[in-house]
Design a protein around this nucleic acid. Structure first.
Lengths: 174, 174
DNA sequence: TTTGTAGTTCACACCGACGTAAACTTATGA
DNA sequence: TCATAAGTTTACGTCGGTGTGAACTACAAA
């Protein structure tokens, strides 16, 4: 399963472990649901790893069992965008927000010092530039997680064309 | 230096180590260049770490010595976007490209099998969807790395407004 | 030349992420 | 009921990333 390896690694970038990506890809590309044993076998990893990883994927809603029995085979949920958006929101937003808040506090402090005539060891203008950048990143992230990528294969091609067109105009910005 | 920690962690996300982000941020916010000893002291890390990290930053062009002497103090290069774009290109492009090529090969193989009447264990349509997604990701990445973020503080605010406007129309896409 | 200080290099320690083996639990079916 | 197979849990090994200590080098000033 070279495909699962390659796509899996790609997916791993978006806040998942590589094994998650590999399992999801294998299930996504399979015509029929597969048992954990099959998955472990095809990917060449232990059943223990498949068991835990599958449950983590299930918690995120990226994979679901077909049937109710304990050893029901698994299939991939194809509509992954909402989950990715969630991960981005949880993980990145917190990080950016912390940087932004810290910067704001530091700027405020520096402004007070400056207004009382103290010569600063730090550069206020540059602090403001960084603050603008974090705000920009937040806006960007907000738009990203609000995006609705079409779930149907039929409309996906169409959507891709329009989205690409819009993105191109970003490049022409002066 | 809480600011350096917070911003540094944020930067670390873009393919750098956290210490790189912290050092760069400290230098970027300082009114005057700083020696490695000062940096190590302010950040509370060993001079050994600052030495190697500073050189790595220098190789990437994110930081430069002021003066020619061996112990010249360092200052941050503020125009970071080209460097980030480089990292994205090098690191992400390779990953996506590998996924894309592997997928294409797998699809081709599957098509041959199917046309010769063999019933497939894998789902050809889903493979094609994944392929579209990698292509979309490539287009997106290409636009991203070609972006020119203004270097001057004066035009940055203006640019941010326009860019945000464009991004918003992405959200409204159907 | 000597002495002190900044910077460099390298061997090692620590830690978390990832994966395995093996024992254990639960279901299926002869 | 017992045997077998699937799935789960836990304790452990390995590895890479990150950082330190200490020895070493290069330079500046006395």
């Amino acid at each position: 399963m070279h495909v699962a390896d390659a796509v899996g690694e790609f997916i791993a970038w978006w806040g998942f472990k590589a094994i998650h990506g590999r399992i999801w890809t294998l299930l996504a590309l399979s015509s029929n649901p597969r048992s954990q044993a099959e998955v472990a076998d095809l990917l060449g990893v232990s059943r223990a790893l498949v068991s835990t990883a599958t449950h983590e994927l299930h918690e995120r809603g990226l994979v679901r069992p077909v049937g109710a029995s304990r050893q029901a085979p698994w299939t991939a949920v194809m509509d992954v965008w909402p989950v990715i958006a969630d991960v981005l929101r949880d993980r990145e937003w917190i990080m950016i927000e912390r940087a932004r808040v810290t910067l704001e506090a530091a700027i405020e402090e520096a402004e007070i010092l400056e207004s009382s005539g103290v010569s600063l060891e730090f550069d206020l203008d540059r602090m403001r530039v960084l603050l603008s950048l974090t705000e920009m990143a937040q806006r960007f992230l907000r738009i990203l997680v609000a995006l609705r990528v079409p779930r149907s294969i039929a409309s996906l091609g169409d959507w891709l064309v329009k989205a690409t067109g819009l993105l191109s105009s970003l490049r022409r910005l002066r």
